[in-house]
């Protein structure tokens, strides 16, 4: 196997190809829609996993989710730009730029202060959006019909299929890139920073810089996630894009997935989406009970998240190694 095509990359390639084929040829629209929403969210979770491996949890990444979503929506509404090859990268870019700017402040904080400072920034954006009538205030506004290579369609199945294939492609690419990143020298500074910041500094690398880079990466991925979600739902509003519950949901799925693999966010996010759907169908007014109970079970019995179960079943319960991909729960 070459340096690039290792086992994880092959697994990701086969896995995403399989999901894409199933989506196009087998899955009904409602399920394809669920996968689209789940994989969109998984992009944000992928970024949070990188932060988690660094020992950092953010309770405010709805900030970047919302920025991505509103960027896509505003480009269509205000500038008439609906081309997804422009709007989606723009979503990631805007989130990355804001993440870069805020990163200078945020990188100085750790633990609960890191988590809550992110929340504070996200609530500022929430407040601004709620008070901005030009952006629909609490009601938000509709997202223009997206186009690809300048071609748009009113056919909802075609639109769904295109978005589904796009999220599979971007999901695969993001997972591969993050996997390569975690295998790099800089990527090894995730667990290293978590373990011992003093030693990292005295080996000659800036901890602040290392954290800043990972923060920007997570912001960009979360912005992309918000962009995809806006396109999938066709609507943006503060409550469903920027509220603290969105941040909480992202952390929920991160814990559920586990940091053991770049594939985990996609599996965890899909299971979360299906769990929520069926729980809602079963007990419409108490679905949170089932979802919350599931998270409790994961925390108690699978502290490394669902991925640790997959690792054990597959006999891949590897030791933690920088340049490899081992989970927090496997410490």
């Amino acid at each position: 196997m070459t340096q690039f095509m290792d086992r994880t990359v092959i697994g990701l390639t086969l896995g995403f190809a399989l999901v894409a084929l199933l989506g196009v040829f087998v899955l009904p629209d409602w399920l394809m829609s669920q996968v689209l929403i789940a994989f969109s969210r998984a992009l944000a979770v992928l970024g949070l996993v990188v932060l988690w491996r660094t020992g950092l949890i953010s309770f405010g990444h709805a900030l970047y989710f919302g920025l991505g979503a509103y960027t896509v929506a505003m480009l269509g509404k205000d500038l008439g730009v609906t081309e997804v090859l422009i709007t989606l990268p723009a979503a990631g870019l805007v989130a990355a730029v804001v993440g870069f700017a805020l990163g200078f402040i945020i990188r100085k904080y750790r633990e609960i202060f890191f988590a809550m400072l992110n929340l504070a920034f996200s609530m500022v954006l929430f407040g601004i959006l709620v008070k901005t009538e030009a952006l629909g205030s609490t009601d938000g506004f509709s997202v223009e019909q997206p186009t690809l290579f300048g071609i748009g369609t009113e056919d909802s199945t075609v639109k769904l299929t295109v978005l589904f294939l796009a999220v599979c492609t971007v999901g695969w690419l993001s997972a591969v890139l993050v996997h390569r990143y975690l295998g790099s020298v800089l990527g090894s500074l995730t667990t290293a920073v978590r373990d011992n910041e003093i030693r990292v500094e005295y080996l000659g690398y800036s901890v602040a810089q290392a954290i800043h880079g990972k923060y920007v990466m997570s912001a960009a991925l979360t912005g992309l996630a918000g962009g995809f979600t806006a396109l999938a739902l066709g609507q943006v509003d503060p409550e469903s894009m920027v509220n603290w519950t969105v941040s909480g949901e992202l952390v929920f799925v991160t814990v559920l997935s586990g940091p053991g693999s770049v594939a985990a966010p996609f599996i965890g996010s899909l299971l979360f989406e299906l769990l929520r759907t069926y729980a809602f169908e079963l007990v419409p007014y108490a679905w949170q009970l089932i979802v919350g109970g599931t998270l409790l079970a994961v925390i108690f019995f699978l502290p490394g998240g669902l991925w640790s179960l997959i690792s054990k079943l597959g006999g891949r319960d590897r030791a933690a190694q920088p340049g490899g991909n081992r989970g927090e729960g496997e410490r």
């Binding site: 020298v185 090894s188 500074l189 667990t191 290293a192 978590r194 373990d195 011992n196 003093i198 030693r199 990292v200 005295y202 080996l203 000659g204 690398y205 030791a319 933690a320 190694q321 920088p322 340049g323 410490r331």
Partner: peptide, 21 residues
Amino acid sequence: QVFMTATVFDNLMIALGIADS
């Protein structure tokens, strides 16, 4: 001051990685 959750070998790999890069 070492990386407590990493193996001895991985501690050195990280140190070498930073020194080399």
